[in-house]
Design a protein around this nucleic acid. Structure first.
Lengths: 178, 178
DNA sequence: CTTCCTCCTCTACAGATGTAGAGGACTCTA
DNA sequence: TAGAGTCCTCTACATCTGTAGAGGAGGAAG
């Protein structure tokens, strides 16, 4: 599908060069398509951005389904997989920042994690699940950001390794404690 | 000082329009200076970016000095102040993302928080202060991100209020617990 | 075969952008 | 007052970017 080819190329570009690298022609080149292709599918730049953010959201949807028997472990594995798929996650951050001055994007990027986190907090018997869930979400977000672009990116264990998952799991477990 | 005027305008621009909005001429206009001024002080775009990131780092330096008698409280207040200075913090995130494909920036943005966090963890008697400090840093980073651009930006208490600081303090306290 | 329609490629163009340098205004020194 | 040096403004230009539309290739329908 041409459309997906284009949005995938856009995601790679954004990850590698930032939003500034996202131009119609750059996407054409990156996707190996003739000039004008991207412009034909997404006439305006805004449409192009929305296109690739939608694609990101689609792909992310599938990942979030924690195993109730091993909450911490499954979450740790999910986070680790996001570290491994570095480019997609970087593109997601770029999109979140973009959504700051481009609010339509917010509705595309569903923030379902929050309700899930509240549910988990409830399950584990927190007194104030709403707040505990929020803090938990914040912590996960931070863990990911810290390891992907923050100080932890140069210090922590390499993503995709057993050690990385173990480290993450320990952190998640601590955050889950009432 | 012309130079600071320019870098400050750059920071505002980046916060409001993202890295893409950062052009020599846009900075000129934003700073109310005649066209060409920014280009004279920072001939290349790379220099301009490094300039504003340096400015950010300078300004941030001053903020980070936790009160040993009220670690959680002082950290909470610092984070809240970063939420209040929304634009500066947004620009910082944009810069961190930029540093991903522009490594020279990393050396400009000192990641001193990590050592500080380790010190705090040691002070509070954690067994593995190195790791505890890392997790703590991650949590703070996440708290900030979550409240600034994540789901918490639409849900949490308004930055700058007593309630905001209280909420943050509770979260920080929990994260500090061994 | 002809007609129509969709999908794609190519070309066009106004405006923005990065970067460079000429030259003026101003300041300091002697 | 003259000269030198610094700081700033203006102009120039090649290149890139967003967006539009003309027109061709090829398949479907008659």
């Amino acid at each position: 599908m041409r459309r997906d080819l284009i949005t995938d190329a856009a995601i790679q570009l954004v990850a590698e060069q930032g939003m500034r690298g996202l131009t119609h022609r750059a996407v054409d080149r990156r996707a190996g398509l003739p000039e004008g292709s991207t412009s034909a599918y997404f006439r305006t730049r805004k449409a192009l951005i929305e296109g690739f953010v939608e694609r990101l959201a689609d792909q992310e949807q599938r990942d979030i389904t924690p195993d109730p028997d091993d909450v911490a472990g499954s979450i740790a594995r999910t986070i680790d997989s996001w570290l491994v798929e570095r480019n997609r996650t970087l593109a997601r951050y770029a999109a979140m920042l973009e959504a700051t001055h481009h609010p339509e994007l917010k509705s595309i990027m569903v923030h379902s994690p929050r309700e899930q986190a509240t549910a988990i907090a409830k399950m584990l018997g927190h007194e104030d699940p709403e707040r505990a869930g929020a803090h938990f979400t914040a912590f996960l977000e931070g863990l990911l950001f810290y390891r992907l672009v923050g100080a932890g990116s140069t210090v922590g264990p390499a993503p995709g390794t057993e050690e990385s998952v173990r480290d993450l799991k320990a952190a998640v477990e601590k955050a889950l404690r009432p």
